[in-house]
Design a protein around this nucleic acid. Sequence first.
DNA 1: TTGGTTTAGTTGGTAATACAAACCATCTCT
DNA 2: AGAGATGGTTTGTATTACCAACTAAACCAA
Lengths: 142, 142
Amino acid sequence: MPADDTVDALVDALVRCTFQITGVLTRIGADNDLSLTQLRVFGILRDRRPRVTELAAYLGLDKSTMSGLIDRAERRGLLAREKNPADGRVVDVFLTPAGRDLTQRLYLEVRDALAPEITRLRPAQRDQLLALLDPLLNPTGD
Amino acid sequence: MPADDTVDALVDALVRCTFQITGVLTRIGADNDLSLTQLRVFGILRDRRPRVTELAAYLGLDKSTMSGLIDRAERRGLLAREKNPADGRVVDVFLTPAGRDLTQRLYLEVRDALAPEITRLRPAQRDQLLALLDPLLNPTGD
DNA sequence: TTGGTTTAGTTGGTAATACAAACCATCTCT
DNA sequence: AGAGATGGTTTGTATTACCAACTAAACCAA
């Protein structure tokens, strides 16, 4: 692994960018009484209906952690559990209408919070950035 | 604020990128018995010697949270407190040699973990990405 | 079909993270 | 000197997170 200043600078920029966005997300979560982790849960449930273990795997958390997280959100009426009819051991998790509303609101808040930074880029640059982030997100090939 | 699909896609990509990198950082932290927050603490102390409140402000945390964080790391000999000679109320925080070593190792681990993704970009693209991230990080002007 | 194993999820125990409120020490300003 | 502001710690509580132990359901083998 050869020393490469650009790689170093990029690692630095990516990490700082990560913390900056995490800060925004944490703040928006806190405004809605949600932790960052719960925010992620809602993000995942937006277009999925996973079982508990799948959800835990997405988030890199233990099953038991997942149980508690779901408990608390369920008590608040934001999501619900349902036994999987095909396999009695499995519990599916999904958003309630209230949870869906909240998720939508959260998404708009995040969008509005990040928009000022994004619109600092010219439209052509936005497309460029999108194209550059893609290979970082999708480990296609390799 | 007009609807703009590119902005939406970019928000999505940035958030996913954030969680992906957070995952990497969390794993590296865990391998070294450090939480993500502690990782950030070490990152900040790498080239600073802040007072407790400054550190808390950087991280967006309460003073009291900071106290505990520092306590635990201090007990492990990774960082130290020192009364500020100019103002008896203030406590400065800084890395011990052991903490400095650990921080350096962590940095290399992060670098190695992110390098594969980065080297998927051609060198010219890396420079481009760096240039595009810059305005997101530095709210110059506005 | 019965018995052993694996899989899915919950429960209980512990440590770390995080906040708020109360508190002590020090500094600042009048 | 005394009142108020500032910087940190302490205390109490909820959440996050892990591990280990447990229960229920499914699978598999003989």
